[in-house]
Design a protein around this nucleic acid. Sequence first.
DNA 1: AACCAATCGTTACAATCTTCACGATTAAAT
DNA 2: ATTTAATCGTGAAGATTGTAACGATTGGTT
Lengths: 211, 211
Amino acid sequence: MKKFSNKTIARAFLYIRILDDRIQNKQKYISSQELSDISGLTDVQIRKDISLFGKVGKPRVGYDTKELRGFLEAFVLKSTVRAVLFGVGNLGQAILKYPGFQTEKIKIVAAFDKDSRKVGKKINGVAIYAMKDVSRVIHRSRAQIAIIATPSEASQEIAGIITKSGLKGIINFAPSSLVVPKGVSVRNIDLSIEFLSLFYDIHSSRKRRKS
Amino acid sequence: MKKFSNKTIARAFLYIRILDDRIQNKQKYISSQELSDISGLTDVQIRKDISLFGKVGKPRVGYDTKELRGFLEAFVLKSTVRAVLFGVGNLGQAILKYPGFQTEKIKIVAAFDKDSRKVGKKINGVAIYAMKDVSRVIHRSRAQIAIIATPSEASQEIAGIITKSGLKGIINFAPSSLVVPKGVSVRNIDLSIEFLSLFYDIHSSRKRRKS
DNA sequence: AACCAATCGTTACAATCTTCACGATTAAAT
DNA sequence: ATTTAATCGTGAAGATTGTAACGATTGGTT
């Protein structure tokens, strides 16, 4: 399979979202310039990204919104992503209700929590299970990635459970670094670091750039 | 002021957090190798990052944990960050209770919500105000950055209110791109994109790297 | 005192990512 | 039919980021 960089892929998803919005508004074509205005990226970068996947734009016109949407999707969005969630506190519940997942091909198929009062309930249609059922539920639901939204103290232990169950991808919201076996991908989403680096950005540089 | 790259700064915050943990455990020294094992970054990168700030390591011993902590902090963490939050739904409440903020120098000083039933309440010690009071509360609280945790539809309008109030930094959790004046920094935290790109990562490349 | 091993700091190198410059293409106007 | 203007696609240059190699320093060992 041809390999595209992480950054290109992340931008491709952004383009797809913008395209979905324009398709809904019955817009037939969109130029790299317009995509640039919306996304904050440069028009050249957008053309370059898209051209990595293939030639699909029409000179003088731009890109056919539906065609480009389908084109990008074929490369990056082959199937629905099924995820399981660990930790149904505020953050976990926020994730279960996250609006971006409704339209995207992301489905949270099960949740787990230590609190026995939560077990057996459903939130936004997703059932909450006890920790002892993790392995069984993961296999039965054919989950592909896991989300850790527990307190930091529990995150490493849960990462172990997750990898033992065979999952190869983890999104970690706990402010901790996880040790995982080779072959497992981790994305750390660290709110503190986002805050602090934004703050640093504001204070250090007066001539601003887009993030 | 000397300028460091965003990536270096983000890693510096990560080092600080690791150091805090080790300082709590009374560990006196730490090597770049140990930092590497914990963080997943290479030891060379760590030494290089740290050396950008200055010479502070001791050959054959490593870095004095407290000294390095203080050293990094002096460069990147000059003062407490005061933030206001827009939208007190699940995500907003998760942010208000986010454990990473307790120890870090991040303080959420006020929250806003359209829902009049929420206005006047407090969550985790943070008062919730009505939207009409935004400007007044921002100025009185001397907030520096804003967090958008509202539905997407509202995010652009709120970004306008925020920038009119003079804030220069926005963290946007809504799956939308914001148009802001020059001089305002935006960090988009887009959960869909994180999920999808992790999923792509798992499927495309079999020879894995750390993220 | 001399040696050894661990560790930092740094220069040079490599890889990745972005921007630039410009030719190619095509719809519309005349 | 010709011209024009908008837009794409892309090879080359430039910028940024990460890696490797290795000398310099120092605590411990003999």
